[in-house]
Design a protein around this nucleic acid. Structure first.
Length: 499
RNA sequence: GCGAAAGUAGCUCAGCUGGUAGAGCGCGACCUUGCCAAGGUCGAGGUCGCGGGUUCGAACCCCGUCUUUCGCUCCA
C-alpha cells in the first residue's frame, strides 16, 4: 500500500500546507489563544468559502443532478435508542487494558475471547463458554475491576512481553455524551451523533411518504458528527468534530450490488470533477467489513502523508432499518408496486441501503493539498519560488480581484466602479495598496483565479486586463464583458456539467 | 495512555560557556512608482508557554506543569 516516492523535487510537506492554511486564513487551530485544543480546527475567512463551495457542489451533484435524491437536515441530538439500534452503544464502548511492560494496549474483551478460544481448542469448550458468560455478566454490570481480575485470574499474559503486568481496565467513550435537561437530577444522557447516517434512517419513512418517493431513491445530508476517540494526527484529516456529506440510497434487496457499483463510479467522477487528478485517486476495497456492511470501498486520495480515505461507499444491507424497526416497533417497510415476472406487485420489504459518505473536511484538505503549488520561476539571480493555489475557479474563495494600476489619476475610482458592477454576481476584492506585482502575488496565495487591472487605457476605452492565475497571462477585454466572461468560468455549472 | 521532540514578534527562525531580546518576511502611515513578492523614510508589535528552584544575574541550568507535533494504540 505504500506509495512510491516521487523522484523530482521534494514533495510539499504537510507542514507547508498547514502553515499556508493558517497564514492565509483557511484553517486555524481551535482556541489558539488558549494554546489550542487537540484535533479541533476552525475555518478562517477563506477556508469557509472554499468549504462552502465544496459543500454546495456536493449538494447540487446529489439533489439537483439526481431527481430521485432529496436532502434533509436532521438534528445532531437524537434519541439515545438510535445509538443502541445502530450498534454504537454496544459495539463501540470498548474496555481497554494496557500492559505496562510492552506498552501495548488491548481490548480487554478480546483478550478474554482469545482465552476462551484457547480453551475450546484444547478440548474444554464448556470452560471457554463459562468464561465468556462471566465476561458478559461483568461487562453488563460495567464491572471493569472484575474484568481486570478475571484477566489476571485466568493467567492471561501479554503476547509480546509475556507478563501480566496490567493496568486498570478503562472504558473508552467513543461517543461524546451530554445531558438533556437543565435540572441535573432529571437530566438524561444523550450523545452527539458519531455519524450523520442515522438521522437519515430514522426519517426514511417521513421522506418516502411525504415526498412520495419510489424506490430506488436517496436521501442526502450534510452535517457535523463527533468522535471522542480521535487523537490529533495529520491536520484536519482527523478531527473530533467533523463534517460529513452523506447519501443513503434505498434499493430493492438483491439489487444493492448494482447500485453499489454505480455509486462507486459516480463518486469517483465527482472527485475528478472538483479537480483531483486521477492518478492521485484510487479505490481501496475493504477486506474486513463493519458489522452492518456486505461490501465496502474507500476512495483514497494521495495526501502528502500517503493515500488515505476521503470517501466511503458501503453496502449497508437492511441492517440499520431492520434494527430501528425492532427497537422502535415501527415498521420500516416499503410497499413496492412494481410488477415482478409473474405480473404481481413486488410487495413489502425493508429496503437495502447503499451509502456514500464523504468527509467534507477531508475533501477540503485533499483539494487544498492538490491546489498548493510551488513553482521555480526566473533565471539565475532572479530565480524565486512562486506559490499559488491552483483551485478550480468555481471553488476559489475569491473569484476576482480588481486593482487600479496606480493609486492616482482617477484609476481607483474607475476600479471601484468595476467592483460595483461585479460584486452582486460573485465575490470580489478591491486592492490598491503596494505595487501591483505584490497584489497579484497576494491573490495567487489564496487562489483567486482572475485579477482585473484598471490602467490608463481603461480611462480611454473602458477596457481592462484580466490576468490568469495559473499562467499569469493577461488579456484585454471590455468592462462590459467581465460579468459574462468571469461568471462563466467561476460557475459551479463548470463542475456539475462534468458529472 | 506510553515514548520522543518542540514552545522566543503576525509568520519563519537566530540568540555562543548564564550578563537587560534580534533578523528576514509580513503589518501600519507617508513619499516614490506605467504590470508580476519594486525603492525610501518613519512606526507598531515580545511578561522568551506557565509555575517554582539555583544564581549577584536565567530565553539559556534544574524540577514541575500545560499545550502542540511525531511514533505506538484507537479510528463504526
Amino acid at each position: 500500500m505504500e506509495d512510491a516516492k516521487p523522484k523530482q523535487a521534494p514533495a510539499t510537506s504537510l507542514q507547508d500546507i498547514i502553515s499556508h492554511a493558517k497564514e492565509y486564513g483557511f484553517v486555524f487551530p481551535s482556541s489558539e489563544i488558549y494554546d489550542g485544543l487537540q484535533a479541533v480546527y476552525d475555518y478562517g475567512q477563506n477556508g469557509v468559502e472554499l468549504k462552502n463551495n465544496l459543500k454546495q457542489v456536493w449538494w447540487k451533484a446529489m439533489t439537483q443532478l439526481h431527481e430521485n435524491v432529496v436532502g434533509i437536515d436532521a438534528a445532531i441530538f437524537m434519541h439515545p435508542l438510535t445509538w443502541k439500534a445502530s450498534g454504537h452503544v454496544d459495539s463501540f464502548n470498548d474496555p481497554m487494558i494496557d500492559n505496562k511492560d510492552s506498552k501495548k494496549r488491548y481490548r480487554a474483551d478480546q483478550l478474554l475471547e482469545l482465552k476462551a478460544e484457547e480453551y475450546a481448542a484444547n478440548g474444554q469448550p464448556e470452560k471457554g463458554h463459562e468464561l465468556l458468560l462471566e465476561m458478559g455478566r461483568l461487562l453488563g454490570e460495567n464491572d471493569l475491576n472484575g474484568v481486570r481480575e478475571l484477566i489476571i485470574s485466568e493467567g492471561i499474559v501479554d503476547p509480546i512481553s509475556k507478563t501480566a503486568n496490567w493496568t486498570e481496565v478503562r472504558q473508552f467513550n467513543l461517543m461524546f455524551s451530554t445531558q438533556v435537561g437543565s435540572v441535573a437530577e432529571d437530566a438524561s444522557l444523550i450523545y452527539l451523533r458519531p455519524e450523520t447516517a442515522q438521522g437519515i434512517f430514522v426519517n426514511f419513512l417521513n421522506v418516502q411518504k411525504t415526498g412520495r418517493m419510489k424506490i430506488p431513491f436517496g436521501i442526502a445530508q450534510i452535517g457535523k458528527a463527533f468522535r471522542n476517540e480521535i487523537v490529533a494526527r495529520q491536520f484536519t484529516f482527523r478531527m473530533r468534530e467533523f463534517e460529513q456529506m452523506e447519501m443513503q440510497f434505498f434499493v430493492r434487496p438483491g439489487t444493492e450490488m448494482e447500485w453499489y457499483e454505480k455509486w462507486k463510479e459516480t463518486r469517483l467522477n465527482f472527485h475528478k470533477a472538483v479537480g483531483l487528478p486521477a492518478e492521485k485517486l484510487k479505490y481501496h476495497i475493504h477486506e474486513k467489513l463493519a458489522h452492518y456492511a456486505n461490501a465496502a470501498v474507500d476512495i483514497e486520495f494521495q495526501f502528502p502523508f500517503g493515500f488515505r480515505e476521503i470517501e466511503g461507499i458501503h453496502s449497508r444491507t437492511d441492517f440499520d432499518l431492520k434494527s430501528h424497526q425492532e427497537l422502535s416497533r415501527k415498521k420500516q417497510q416499503y410497499f413496492d408496486n412494481d410488477l415482478d415476472e409473474n405480473g404481481k406487485p413486488v410487495g413489502n420489504y425493508i429496503p437495502y441501503v447503499v451509502e456514500t459518505s464523504v468527509g467534507a473536511d477531508r475533501l477540503f484538505l485533499a483539494v487544498f493539498c492538490n491546489a498548493y503549488t510551488e513553482e521555480v520561476v526566473g533565471e539565475g539571480e532572479n530565480q524565486k519560488t512562486r506559490t499559488y493555489l491552483k483551485l478550480h475557479p468555481a471553488l476559489a474563495p475569491v473569484k476576482a480581484a480588481i486593482f487600479p494600476l496606480v493609486r492616482k489619476d482617477g484609476l481607483p475610482e474607475k476600479a471601484q466602479e468595476v467592483v460595483k458592477q461585479l460584486r452582486s454576481e460573485f465575490r470580489v476584492i478591491y486592492e490598491e495598496r503596494d505595487a501591483i506585482g505584490k497584489r497579484y502575488t497576494r491573490q495567487d496565495l489564496i487562489g483567486t483565479p482572475f485579477c482585473i487591472a484598471v490602467d490608463y487605457q481603461t480611462l480611454e476605452d473602458n477596457t481592462v486586463t484580466i490576468r490568469y492565475r495559473d499562467t499569469t497571462e493577461q488579456v484585454r477585454v471590455p468592462i462590459s464583458d467581465l460579468k459574462s466572461r468571469i461568471g462563466q468560468e467561476v460557475s459551479i455549472e463548470r463542475i456539475l456539467e462534468q458529472l
